Simulated assay, not measured.
Amino acid sequence: MVYEISETAMQIGELALRSMLYEVASHPSPGLVSPFSSGGHKDMDFFTFLRSSSALVFPVTLCAEIGLREDPGLIFWKIREIGIKAEERMFEVTSGVNTQKGLLFLESIISSAAGHVLSRGKDVTPNDISRAVSIICSGLTKNDFGKLKFKNVLTRGEKLYLEHGMKGIRGEVEAGLPTVMKYGLPALHEAMSAGLNDNDIMVHVLISIMRAAEDTNIAGKFSVDVLNEVKSAAREAMNKGGMLTEEGREIIWRMDSEFKERGISPGGSADLAAATLFVHLLSTCDIKLESRKCF
Rank of each mutant, 00 (worst) to 15 (best):
N199Q: 08
L154F: 11
Y161S: 05
L148Q: 08
H41F: 06
F222Y: 11
G67A: 10
A25E: 14
E229N: 13
S134A: 15
K159G: 00
I129G: 05
V180H: 05
E14F: 09
A86D: 02
S291R: 15
I287R: 05
I251P: 01
S6V: 11
F58V: 14
V24R: 11
M166R: 07
K260C: 03
R18C: 08
Y3R: 03
L160Y: 06
Q11H: 12
L118H: 09
S232R: 15
A233L: 10
S134V: 07
R80K: 02
R18W: 14
R120Q: 15
M20W: 09
L282Q: 13
L148R: 08
V33N: 05
E247P: 01
I218M: 07
S291D: 14
E107F: 03
E4T: 11
S269W: 00
V93I: 06
L148P: 10
S37F: 11
N127W: 14
C285D: 14
I12F: 01
I169P: 04
E290T: 14
M255V: 03
V180D: 06
A275I: 00
L244M: 04
L17G: 10
S134F: 06
L21N: 08
K42S: 11
G139E: 13
K159L: 04
E88Y: 06
A16G: 08
D200K: 09
G267V: 10
G83E: 04
I75K: 07
P30D: 03
R235P: 00
S34N: 05
A55S: 15
G121A: 12
D215E: 09
T216R: 09
L289K: 13
G67W: 05
K221G: 01
K221F: 01
R69C: 15
Y183N: 14
R211T: 13
I66R: 10
G168K: 05
Y22C: 06
Y22P: 00
E87W: 04
L118G: 12
T8A: 10
S19D: 03
Q11F: 04
L68G: 08
R18T: 15
R249E: 06
M243K: 04
A113S: 14
V57F: 14
F105K: 00
E236S: 11
T48M: 02
S52A: 05
G31W: 10
G157Y: 03
N127V: 10
S269T: 03
L185V: 02
K231G: 00
I251C: 02
P72A: 12
V117I: 09
R211H: 09
G115S: 12
I209Q: 04
E92N: 10
I5Q: 08
A274C: 03
L32N: 01
F46M: 11
D43Q: 12
V226G: 07
V173S: 09
R80C: 01
G121F: 12
A86F: 01
L272H: 00
S34I: 03
V133A: 05
E290S: 15
V224L: 15
G248Q: 03
S119H: 12
L227G: 06
E4A: 12
E107M: 13
S265W: 07
